[in-house]
Write a protein that binds this DNA or RNA. Structure first.
Lengths: 105, 105
DNA sequence: AGAATAGGTGACCAAATGGTCACCTGTCAA
DNA sequence: TTGACAGGTGACCATTTGGTCACCTATTCT
């Protein structure tokens, strides 16, 4: 939905690290994630909150633990709606090459 | 080179707008770009500086004017090195579908 | 030469950001 | 049932960020 929130969420290296960790293995708990960052639990909580609000992380509570899951959909969205536009030149470069070859042949 | 600078540069909507403007038409001057944003010249200068430092904009000085050009390479880099990893699931989803259809047939 | 034009610098400011801590609640296990 | 454990809240703080302004330099036009 909100592209800006996603871009802002991705702008911090700690948050990208959290996404990488969740990509590697989903459903981790806060303290589990905390163990991987050089930061107190509170800092990690704040980052996870930002990620949740951007829709990049979805969390489910189980007993006294909170399990965190990666949701890649918003990344795909900014990819399709924004980034792709800047990267598709490569494709047209290939098409140009194809056309050129066909004309030569 | 520096992924973090690129992500940070992309995190601001004014800067993304600047990139969109340059995507539309390259080689614009500062005052030309300034005219499109609701901000003073100085604000735009700062944003352009951030974009330059991230390598997303390259500028050439011509007389008393400064011409700004878009460089999409860093966007492609974060795409290939980071974003693609989260979006390629779609490809495997398509492959799964393909396999499923082949098995059914 | 003199005025207008395009851009640059450094100081400054308010608001957002990244992080810690004291303290509190709910849940599990001995 | 009592202690340990997982998580949450609000206050607080330093730094960064997004933006303006006064003033300055270099180039162009008449």
């Amino acid at each position: 939905m909100d592209d800006d929130a996603v871009f802002k969420a991705l702008a911090d290296p700690s948050r990208r690290l959290l996404l990488d960790l969740l990509f590697e293995r989903d459903g981790r708990t806060l303290t589990e994630l905390d163990a991987e960052l050089e930061m107190t639990r509170f800092g990690v909580m704040k980052h996870l909150k930002v990620l949740e609000e951007a829709g990049l992380v979805v969390a489910r509570k189980q007993g006294r633990e909170k399990l965190h899951f990666l949701n890649a959909v918003p990344i795909r969205q900014i990819h399709d709606r924004w980034i792709d536009k800047y990267t598709e030149h490569r494709v047209s470069a290939l098409l140009d090459l194809k056309n050129e070859l066909e004309e030569t042949a």
